[in-house]
Amino acid sequence: MSTFRIGGDLEVNRLGYGAMQLSGKGVFGDAVDRDNAVAVLRAAVAAGVNFIDTAEAYGPRYNETLIKDALYPYAPGVIVATKGGFDRPGPGTWVPNGEPAVIHSQIEGSLKRLHVNTIDLWQLHRIDPKVPVEETLGPVVEAVAAGKIRHVGLSEVTIEQIERAEKVLPIVSVQNRYNLGDRQWEEVLDYTTRRNMAFIPWYPLASGPQKLEDKIGAIAARHKATTAQIALAWLLKRAPNILLIPGTKSVDHLAENMRAAEIELSDEEFAELS
């Protein structure tokens, strides 16, 4: 499996795991089947995953605790990235909150729940339009200086927002929605590639609009693969700085996703899908 160095020093396999689906309905509450959730997380690490994506907002908070319960003490080289910056008043409800006191509290909470002294990658889940990002990032700067955060990333941002945040502190990753059928953030992806920042697409398994189905199906048949595996393989070929975090509640589906790393699309197949 190919690797990427986040921030130049955190080497991770490019096919990781996103833990959001292990939360309750509406990404609210604890896992419905906690034993299964623990088994999926352990199977992911056993399969070679060393980059796991979570957030304070997943649950909220339950997801981080689940990861700690399943994986602590963490195997050498396993990176758990988390995020902050949302209020979760109820299932399916997400309210950006960039107030400095909230960000500070969420960072401290994540450290305790994950049972770590340093969060290797902390990402601002959303920029709050009501709070200047410079103020939101104040507690993050303090946490970095105190050794509580190693690297910082952003989520769902424009190039302009990345550059504004970089006037406050270095940014090493961007987590925007991106997949074979939804390429709204193409320009941001290309920007991060030039800058050697990690680009972590969320919702990576979407295979695209109806018009792509026949093409994907033919290529999948050629590789004896599933549509989802081809969607992931396309992303891995799209740019060397893409880190994938497909999520699943199934150990079998996890194994299927992992096999995407073995699929090498030809330049012709890539161009056909692109």
Rank of each mutant, 00 (worst) to 15 (best):
V40M: 03
Y17L: 06
N176K: 11
G8D: 13
G48W: 03
W202A: 07
A228E: 14
I52M: 10
A255K: 15
V45G: 00
T3K: 10
V78Y: 09
L244I: 05
V144Q: 12
M258P: 02
H125Q: 03
G18H: 06
E187H: 14
F4H: 12
A57N: 10
W185K: 15
G77P: 01
A143H: 02
A75V: 01
E262M: 12
I245D: 12
E64H: 05
G153Q: 02
H223V: 13
D30W: 01
R222F: 12
A233H: 09
P89Y: 04
A225Y: 04
K211H: 15
R88A: 09
G29Q: 04
E142Y: 01
V174P: 00
L22A: 02
K130M: 13
Q184R: 15
D33A: 05
Y191R: 11
R222G: 13
W202F: 04
K25F: 09
A57G: 08
V32E: 15
A239W: 06
G29T: 03
Q229V: 07
T136E: 08
S173M: 03
E269T: 09
G16Q: 06
G29K: 03
P73R: 10
A39Q: 13
A70I: 00
R113I: 05
L154F: 02
G92I: 00
P132C: 07
G85M: 00
G77K: 07
A221W: 07
Q21K: 14
P204H: 10
D267F: 05
N63S: 00
I171S: 03
E163H: 04
A233K: 07
L111V: 06
A70H: 01
F86N: 12
I171Y: 02
G59C: 08
S110D: 06
A220M: 10
V32D: 15
L169P: 02
S207C: 10
Y58H: 12
L121Q: 01
V168M: 11
M1G: 07
L114F: 00
E269G: 06
E99K: 11
P100W: 00
I52A: 06
V32M: 12
T3A: 10
L205D: 14
V131I: 12
V188D: 01
K130E: 14
R14N: 06
T158E: 07
K25M: 12
L205T: 15
R222N: 15
S173G: 09
L169N: 05
A47D: 14
K68H: 11
P91C: 02
E272A: 14
T3F: 05
G90A: 13
M197C: 04
V49T: 09
A261N: 11
H115Q: 15
Y17M: 08
G77F: 01
Y58N: 13
E187A: 14
F199A: 05
I6Q: 03
H253D: 09
A225L: 04
A143G: 05
G84E: 04
A228M: 09
I162P: 04
